[in-house]
Design a protein around this nucleic acid. Structure first.
Lengths: 165, 165
DNA sequence: CTGCACCTGACAACAAATTATCAAATGTAT
DNA sequence: ATACATTTGATAATTTGTTGTCAGGTGCAG
């Protein structure tokens, strides 16, 4: 819980690490209803904890449990993980933990707000750039047209016209 | 729990009661390592509790558990029966902690998503600017080309005029 | 002795779970 | 353009789990 592990593995790597085929990984994901995250390309990305889970799954498979049973076992494991902390920590620790967690939540809320602000700013920036581009575009185009037409008709002093404008 | 547990059933009866074939009962006995008593003739005799166990087994089978899993489940069932299984203390704190933790995870996921979106948008913005620049570049180039050709043919002196200004 | 209800073990038949393979599509990098 | 690592879905092949059947045995009641 202390480790915010940002390391993610792709299916090929996991397959290598655990010695099971990719299609088996996908099969397990479907059957056990594991929720493996995806990246922008919707490729699976496995977190360390996912891999721990998979290791457990493999052990249970070794023991001869079918996926239905493993599913239940995983639920239990999660529960005992949660409750396991209670048996090991006394109340004061727990209270402290909760308060720290609360702080994190606050911070996260702050971050969320900031992100939203940034998004808004981005939008404005996009608009601005868009407008500016169009303007420039227009000007250059105008100028070019003007000059072209000038060329086409006569060779009057386009420069003076420009000046006049 | 009472001492009036002396009622025993033979395999035929049990088969009738539970609606499963005799050979299936034998199969389950072997596979689940149930310890069914025998009488003098070494015929199986099923106690009420054996039948309860079998009912449980059937339920678990319905759920899709294989015999290996059911074996484990039976062990667990016995344990919780024996110990009476005191339910968790500190439940409230724990529940709260878990719920807060869940929130954190959710928020983090949200943050991650937002960040990714922003990144994408940034990239797109960059591309856009790039494209615009290129276009403009082209137009200016066009203009310059025209200008040059103009210079080549007539108006030699426009440059000096421009300088003069 | 015969029939019945049970026993065992081996094996066949079926069902379900698991693993493997294929085709088509996508995005990325060289 | 090509190669590569993914994705999904469908389907085949294989393994494992479960149920059914068969061929003998034992004991005992009628």
């Amino acid at each position: 819980m202390t480790d915010m592990d940002e390391r993610f593995y792709k299916i090929g790597e996991v397959s290598e690490m655990l010695g099971i085929e990719q299609h088996t990984l996908r099969y397990l994901e479907n059957n056990l209803k594991l929720k493996i995250k995806r990246d922008e390309r919707s490729d699976r990305i496995y977190s360390e904890s996912d891999i721990e889970t998979l290791k457990l799954v493999l052990k249970l498979k070794e023991k001869g449990l079918n996926t239905t049973a493993i599913k239940l076992a995983l639920e239990n494991a999660e529960e005992t993980e949660e409750t396991g902390m209670a048996t090991r920590t006394n109340n004061t620790d727990l209270v402290e933990l909760v308060s720290v967690a609360r702080k994190i939540v606050e911070q996260n809320e702050e971050l969320l707000k900031q992100n939203k602000n940034m998004e808004k700013r981005m939008e404005k920036l996009e608009e601005k750039i868009e407008r500016r581009n169009e303007e420039r575009e227009k000007k250059v185009q105008e100028f070019l047209d003007l000059w072209k037409s000038e060329q086409g008709s006569k060779n009057k002093s386009w420069l003076s016209k420009l000046r006049g404008k």
